[in-house]
Write a protein that binds this DNA or RNA. Structure first.
Lengths: 327, 327
DNA sequence: AAAAGCTATGAAAACCCTTTCAGCATGATT
DNA sequence: AATCATGCTGAAAGGGTTTTCATAGCTTTT
C-alpha cells in the first residue's frame, strides 16, 4: 500500500494524499475526509525511508560509546534517547568495544546513513578526530562529545571539570584530617588524565611533594581494585581516591579483606556517583560528575547544531562531592 | 556528490558506477579502475537512504525496552547490538519507560521506518500484542521477545524458565537446612509471575502449606528492599528469596541494619546474576538467568526470521544457581 | 563467412515520497 | 461584465540508488 494506491482508491492525486498525510491546510474538508477514510481503511503506514530520501534526513542520531553496559554510559544513553525521542528523533546505539577499527567502521556507516548527528560518549573518543578516515567521513555531520572534545572541525563539547572533581575529593579528605592520601588510576583516557592532574594539583596545594609516588595503577573493575589493594595497604595510607566507582569498590573490598576498616583505617572515595556506590558496604563517598546533566546538555547542543540555530557553544560542568560512609 | 556526478566525471553511466560500488563482476578492469579513481578522489559516500528505498530495508533492527539503564537490559542490548553489527545491521534503542503509550508510538514509528525486526526486552511486553494499534503496526515485522512471548502472529520467543530458576534457589536453601523460607516479589511482570509460581511449586514439593503467607511485596530497588526488610525480619525466617538482585541487596542491607547476620541468621538469594551480586557485601547468591545467552538466541532467531530461513523455532533456556556468600 | 553466444555498457524504470508550479474554479472588486 | 485575487487540485520533477532489459561489439562455433 503506497500513496498511489490510496490516491487511486480515493479518486484524487497523490499530491492531495500527501497533503492530507502532512496535515497541510489547503485541502477541502470533504476531500480530506474522503482521503482519510481510505487511509484509515487500509491503516496506511507512510514509508519513512522514502520521506527521508526527500527530506535528506531520517531524523536519526547515533550514540557512539565503548560499551553501553557501563552504567555511566547506559545512563547517558538513556537520557539522550529519551530527550531525542521527544524531539522526534530515533537513536542508534553503537558499541565500539574500544576498538578504533570499529569506530572507523561506524563513522563510515553512519555517514552513509546520513545520520543527523552523533554523540560521542566517553573521552576515549577524544582522539577520534585525528584519524583521517573518521575525519573524512564525519566532516559533514554535527558531532558532540558528552564528556570530552571530539577534535573535529564540526565537533562541540560538553566538558566536565574532572580536575576539579578529584580536587574536591582530596580536599574533603584533608578536611577530615587525612594526611596520607593515595590515588588509584585505572583507565587511560583523557578524562583519566584530568583526574590524575586534579590529584597532583590538590596535593601540591597541600604542600605534598612527590605526589607521583602516591599514584597506583590498577586494572579497571572490581577484581582490579581488589588486586591493587595489596599495594595500597603496603603504603599505609589513611585515604584512597579512585578514578572509578567500580574500582573503588574493589579497593574497599581488598582493604577490608586485609583486615582493615573503611573508613576508620582507610577512607575510600570513588568517582561517578554510580549506583555501585550505594550498593556496596560501606556506602561509597564519590564524586558526582553529573552524567545526566552532561547528557542533556549534549542533546541541546546537538539539536542546535542540527537545526542550525547558530546559538550553540561548548559547555562546562562542575562536579560535586557526595559524601557517604566510606570517608 | 551523487552517483550521477561520479558517472559524468568518469565518463560512464550511473549503472556502471553502481556496479563498481557493489563489486559486481561484469565490469572491465580498466573501467573499474577509472571509476574507482573518481570515487576515491571525492571520497564518495553512498546514500544508504536511497539504497534502503530500493532494497526496502535499511538493515535496521530495534530494541524495545523499558529502560536501558537496568543492567539486565543493558547487557541484553549490548549483546544484541554487537551481534547485529557483525551482521551489518544497525540497532535502534527505544526506551518506553514502562508507558504503553510510548510503546505504541514506537511501534508506529518503527513500522514507518521499515525496520527489519524488533527485539522485545522484558516480559512487560508480553501484553503488547493485545493492543490493537500495536498489532496492526507490527503485523508485517518479525518480532522476537528475549524473555517472554510477544503474543503476536509473527512473534517468536526465547523463553527463560523462571519457574525453575526460583525452584533452584529454594532447593539450594533447603539443602543447606533452611526451613523457614520467605519470598520477596517486587515487579509485576509475567516473568515475575513465573518466579512466584516457582516459589509455590518448590514449597509444595517440600510439603509446606500456605506458601502464600510467605510472600512479601516490596517496591523494586534498593530502598524497596530495605523497607521490606522490617516485614521480613518480623516473620523470623532463616532464608529469603528475592525476585531481583537489586531488591535482594536492599533486603540484605535492611536485615543487617536490623542487627542480624547474612547468611548466619538469614540467607538471601537474588535473581539475575547481575554485577550487583558481587559488589554488595556479603556477595549475593543468585540465579543466573543467562541474559547473554537469551540475547544471542534472540539475535539468531530474529535473523532467521528476517532472512526467511524458515528454520526458526522458539527456544527455551534453563537458569543456573550461582552460590556466593549470602547463603 | 555467417550464425550464435558472450561480455561490457547504457537507458530507463522502479522504489515512495514531497514540493513546486500551473491550472481552474469560485467569489470579490471595479 | 471584465479583472483580480483566492483556494483547491493535479501534473511533473526531484531525491539517489538498484535493477532489468536492450544493444553494441567481440569471440567462438560450424
Amino acid at each position: 500500500m503506497n500513496i498511489y494506491d490510496i490516491a487511486k482508491e480515493a479518486g484524487v492525486s497523490i499530491s492531495t494524499v500527501s497533503r492530507v498525510l502532512n496535515n497541510k491546510s489547503n485541502v477541502m474538508p470533504a476531500t480530506r475526509e474522503k482521503v482519510q477514510a481510505v487511509l484509515d481503511k487500509h491503516s496506511y503506514t507512510p514509508n519513512a525511508i522514502a520521506r527521508g530520501l526527500v527530506a535528506r534526513s531520517m531524523k536519526t542520531v547515533a550514540v557512539l560509546t565503548v560499551d553501553v553496559r557501563v552504567p555511566h554510559y547506559a545512563r547517558t544513553t538513556y537520557i539522550i534517547e529519551r530527550a531525542f525521542s521527544k524531539l522526534n528523533y530515533h537513536v542508534l546505539v553503537c558499541n565500539t568495544g574500544g576498538e578504533l577499527e570499529e569506530a572507523r567502521r561506524y563513522a563510515r556507516l553512519l555517514a552513509e546513513r546520513q545520520v543527523d548527528g552523533i554523540v560521542l560518549v566517553g573521552s576515549i573518543f577524544n582522539k577520534l578526530g585525528q584519524d583521517e578516515e573518521v575525519a573524512a567521513c564525519l566532516h559533514n555531520i554535527p558531532v558532540v562529545s558528552a564528556n570530552g572534545q571530539p577534535g573535529l572541525p564540526n565537533g562541540y563539547s560538553v566538558l566536565v571539570d574532572d580536575v576539579q572533581g578529584i580536587e574536591l575529593a582530596v580536599e574533603h579528605l584533608a578536611q577530615k584530617g587525612r594526611q596520607n592520601i593515595v590515588y588509584v588510576k585505572d583507565l587511560d583516557t583523557d578524562s583519566a588524565q584530568l583526574k590524575q592532574q586534579g590529584f597532583y594539583t590538590a596535593m601540591q596545594k597541600r604542600g605534598v611533594k612527590n605526589a607521583k609516588n602516591r599514584v597506583i595503577k590498577a586494572e579497571y573493575g572490581l577484581a582490579g581494585g581488589e588486586e591493587a589493594a595489596a599495594q595500597i595497604v603496603a603504603l599505609r595510607p589513611d585515604a584512597v581516591v579512585c578514578a572509578e566507582d567500580l574500582t573503588a569498590v574493589g579497593v574497599m573490598k581488598g582493604i577490608i579483606n586485609a583486615g582493615l576498616k573503611v573508613p576508620e583505617d582507610i577512607a575510600v572515595i570513588g568517582y561517578n556517583n554510580s549506583e555501585y556506590s550505594v550498593i556496596c558496604t560501606p556506602e561509597l563517598t564519590t564524586v558526582d560528575n553529573k552524567v545526566e546533566m552532561s547528557a542533556l546538555f549534549s542533546v541541546q547542543l546537538l539539536e542546535s547544531l542540527i537545526e542550525k540555530d547558530e546559538s550553540f557553544s561548548s559547555m562546562s560542568i562542575q562536579p560535586e562531592l557526595v559524601v557517604r560512609q566510606s570517608s
